[in-house]
């Protein structure tokens, strides 16, 4: 499969065949190769080791490598599929695939559930949602009284936590998202539809026949 693979495999640990990645995701082979151009740029921004560490991820998101952000951290943790503290190219493509406009709706619901289930217990607990609300208030510089935060939590859990056990399970989340489809807006990136035109240079590095 040409020099794309042999070169990429040496320079990018965990690099996976773009043809296989395309077959496992919502992307075409060309789109996987275009994503590789983006991946190369992010993974070499701080340490040129062919992997994306948290600092590089934050730098790409915020243009600031020192900015700590609970939500960006959570996204990083979920993209770090192999739990090695870094994102390799396979992780990157498979995780971004969920954000493709054509990705299955159920995959988007599952991923969004994991985003909010901060400690990975299989439930979104009230304390986790409160932690996220407080982090968001800090991030945005907004001030809300604790009792206002509690009112927001009461109202949210009254609606989402159907069995009223103080936590939201996957089935409750699925129903809640169906009633509030705007919650999945963050799970779709229209940019991914145009990835080959955003990174046209991928054609110079490809030897895959499809292109």
């Amino acid at each position: 499969m040409g020099c794309f693979h042999s070169t990429a495999s040496k320079q990018f640990p965990g690099h996976e065949d773009p043809v296989i990645l395309a077959s496992q995701t919502a992307f075409s082979v060309s789109e996987v190769e275009a994503l590789f151009e983006l991946y190369k740029s992010i993974s070499s921004s701080v340490i040129d080791d062919g992997l994306i560490n948290k600092e590089e991820f934050q730098l790409a998101l915020f243009k600031n490598r020192k900015k700590e952000n609970l939500f960006a951290n959570r996204i990083f943790e979920l993209f770090d599929v192999k739990k090695k503290g870094v994102i390799d190219f396979g992780d990157f493509v498979k995780s971004l695939s969920v954000f493709h406009p054509n990705a299955p709706h159920e995959d988007k619901i599952d991923f969004s559930f994991k985003l909010y289930d901060l400690d990975g217990t299989g439930f979104i607990e009230r304390q986790e949602v409160k932690q996220m609300l407080i982090a968001l208030l800090c991030e945005s510089g907004m001030k809300l009284a604790d009792e206002t935060v509690e009112i927001i939590l009461d109202k949210t859990f009254l609606e989402a936590d159907v069995n009223q056990d103080g936590k939201i399970d996957k089935s409750e989340w699925q129903n809640f998202v169906r009633q509030n489809p705007s919650l999945l807006k963050i799970m779709t990136l229209p940019y991914l539809r145009d990835i080959t035109t955003t990174f046209p240079s991928f054609v110079f590095h490809s030897e895959v026949d499809e292109i």
Binding site: E37, L38, S41, I42, A60, L61, F62, K63, N69, L70, F71, A72, N73, R74, I75, L96, F99, L115, Y116, V129, M132, L133, L136, E139, S140, I151, I152, L153, K155, T156, E159, A160, F176, N180, S182, L183, K185, I186, L189, Y191, I195, T198, F199
Partner: peptide, 25 residues
Amino acid sequence: PFYNAFEFISSMSSGFDLSSLFESK
């Protein structure tokens, strides 16, 4: 105006907005 905590979080948090990854090229 936000009585739905998740709507508040998803619409306000910059950390959940991955579009900036593509603007950084």
